[in-house]
Amino acid sequence: MGFLVVLTLLLLGLVVGGSIERNHFRDLEQREHASRHRVVLSDKHCDDPRPVARASLAVGSVVISTDYFKQFLAAWRLLFGGELRGHATLLERARREALQRMKESAPHADLFLNVRFETFMISQNSQNALGTVELFAYGTAIRFVRRLDDDLDVPSPHDARR
């Protein structure tokens, strides 16, 4: 009976978890393609000669968890060592999602400077060492002056306290 439950959970993780992951990667590719002209840099300065109209802080974050099947594989890996491939894709898609949300939180920005990532472990259960993780991306969103600039008066999101 217990064996059947574990088998069902494994299959559920493999099928549903796998399909969620594939859909997420497809969605990420589309959004990354749509926003590819808005460059993200980890530099603090850029050589662009255009005058800056506005600078603001942009943040994006996501909390993501792995599926039961991957946790099971990871438990085996912890015995023999080696790369945890399931967890690597989990972190990759979380990081890309956080970055994408950061870009989408500043739709008027032309450029993002000094972009940093932070990883924060949420679940600390002993059985799933890397079950749930928060990925957080932040940077400075820059908007250059347009020739007919009428959006200079857009208030900063930090002006009003909610």
Partner: peptide, 9 residues
């Protein structure tokens, strides 16, 4: 959600 993975909104 930990069983199937994905975002925890």
């Amino acid at each position: 959600k930990n069983l199937v993975g994905g975002e925890l909104r």
